[in-house]
Design a protein around this nucleic acid. Structure first.
Lengths: 345, 345
DNA sequence: TTGTACGCGTTATCAC
DNA sequence: GTGATAACGCGTACAA
């Protein structure tokens, strides 16, 4: 009744007095089997509660139906949501998602990738760590003919597809929104521009100011880490240096939150005196008493698209030329209360 | 130079004119190999950049060094953090974490578990879905002699270890804190008590009131889903029914946030008139303008402990009697501004 | 249409 | 100490 031992195709073949090969064929819908035997096999397979041993299939075929996802941290809303998107898209196709986190450590990233390669995953999704500069470990994936897909944070690498949001546009839209609200002296608080996403946001900021005829004299930027503390410090710095500003566009929600906190504690009205916009649409931004305006990155969608790109590459065949596809998602501007100079709350 | 094809022990054996068996022994530190050959093997293995094929090992040994983690949703701070804890503890031991989400759907949970079983994972960590009542799929894991470990949300199942926090104590501490702050008419807004965690929080609430001599006349509870909307609705209901209360202990941070929002929009002072405490220490709670008091569940630690319990079971041997270990973690009460009647802010 | 034989890469058992 | 051989479970040329 309760079969502890897994039944194999041999069990079925013995019970039916046919060869294991025939059983395999019947199970795999080969047309080289008579309908009669196929039905017989299928029936006894069900009766025996047969489950294909995916390990053996993997060893034989080279496909494991596992994919790896490498992110800096798994318990960050953005990354967790991307993973969710990937999982939801791939799970119905029989894939499993193996997760790895790098803690923003390039050497750990390299080790994780090596380990993944060794377990014969069918594909790798990665958002590179901040410290990643050497690209050897990524090239190793390519050499193994394994589809590699960047999401959000990417590097320049030939033959690698990438899914990201238009960070330039996101920044552009955010700054344009601030201008439309009547802010004219807009500061940008960004982060490490070695990462494409922060560079693009910076450029979007510059372009928007230019497009709206704001003199470059009123252009002011700082680079910092994405933390509340940095935001607080930045505001202090702005006042210490007597910078003349009436709005802050931040490349991170955490920086933005720090700004709002420090501005309020200085008795400054947000958004009446100073407007603030963040980036990422972290969950907390909408729960604040004065919800934070921010740029959303549609992370679940990003994961789903990345998964679709992966499936395309798989379907194109292992040995076909690598498809280099670049999908750029539209950011969503969430206009909430910290940037409404004109608006009625 | 760049070997596209993976090198196998046969490549090494041929190069050295020895048998593959000897190579295997040398690689596995068997003492039945001469030191000379071992060194030779090790050297050429390195030269060939040999990587053990884990698939073959898995097929042979039955161990995959993969574990499955099944959660309702991956992009919830609590679950993502538990997974992070598991990953951090198991990754150094060579394990990979495969994630699955159930969307709180019992049938999906069953399918996920079946799929995991079929990929021959070495263990399963699960926080059951709200809708799970039938336990067949969990028993199937046990029958396969695969370690099964509950975390946070658990079911009564013999031979299954569980790691959870002391929800009773967490609730007890929270309510005690409210009492100490001078609140006396404390309402409890809970959630589905079919889930052990909500039942325990409910009991902790009751016990604390009793312990502090609060008449059961002043005991009032409601059951709802864990959403902001439910919290808002609950407050409305409390006023509509003219319930006399001065504090709310919520089994969820989202409910608590809804309460605070609705109370404030009614012009009621929190915490001066009504105190509020939530549960889970969701990230947003500390970012609020008036940070929410709440009970923390040490999720990363929970994951780490769960991983350790798993390792113990693995080390105890596959066929040893299942260890049924129950680890109960201490909750952390985060006293913030929504419950400080006495306190100066 | 079906059966035979082999290989995927490794480890374990038995000889020598 | 080392080598041949079988086995893990499956898919698939090749032969019949």
């Amino acid at each position: 009744m309760s079969q502890k031992e897994k039944t194999t195709i041999y069990d079925i073949s013995r019970a039916l007095n046919i060869s294991a090969a025939t059983v395999s064929r019947a199970l795999n819908n080969s047309n080289r089997v008579s309908t009669k035997t196929r039905e017989l096999v299928l029936k006894t397979a069900k009766a025996f509660n047969y489950q294909q041993n995916s390990l053996a299939v993997a060893l034989k075929s080279g496909r494991t139906f596992n994919v790896g996802v490498v992110v800096p941290f798994i318990n960050r809303a953005f990354f967790a949501s991307v993973i969710r998107g990937i999982e939801e898209e791939l799970e119905p196709k029989g894939y499993h998602v193996i997760i790895c986190q790098t803690h923003e450590d390039a050497s750990k990233e390299a080790r994780q990738l090596q380990a993944l390669l060794n377990t014969h995953i069918d594909g790798v999704f990665i958002s590179v760590s901040k410290s990643t500069e050497d690209l050897k470990h990524l090239q190793a994936v390519l050499q193994s003919k394994i589809p590699l897909i960047f999401f959000d944070r990417k590097k320049d690498l030939k033959g690698v597809s990438a899914v990201s949001i238009d960070d330039f546009q996101g920044a552009y839209d955010a700054v344009t929104h601030l201008v439309e609200q009547g802010y004219t002296k807009i500061v940008h608080l960004g982060s490490d521009r070695k990462l494409n996403i922060y560079e693009d946001r910076y450029r979007g900021y510059i372009a928007a100011l230019k497009a709206h005829g704001i003199s470059s004299r009123n252009l002011f930027t700082l680079q910092m880490s994405s933390t509340i503390e940095s935001g607080i410090e930045a505001v202090n710095q702005l006042y210490d240096s007597q910078t003349d500003f009436d709005a802050i566009f931040c490349a991170s929600d955490y920086i933005a939150l720090g700004c709002v906190q420090e501005l309020r504690s200085r008795g400054i009205q947000v958004p009446q005196e100073i407007g603030v916009v963040g980036f990422s649409n972290e969950p907390f931004t909408s729960h604040l008493e004065h919800p934070l305006s921010t740029v959303g990155q549609t992370p679940v969608l990003m994961g789903k698209i990345a998964a679709q790109v992966f499936l395309e590459q798989i379907n194109a065949g292992k040995d076909s030329d690598p498809i280099e596809k670049s999908v750029v998602l539209k950011p969503e501007l969430f206009i909430r209360s910290t940037s409404l100079k004109k608006g009625t709350l």
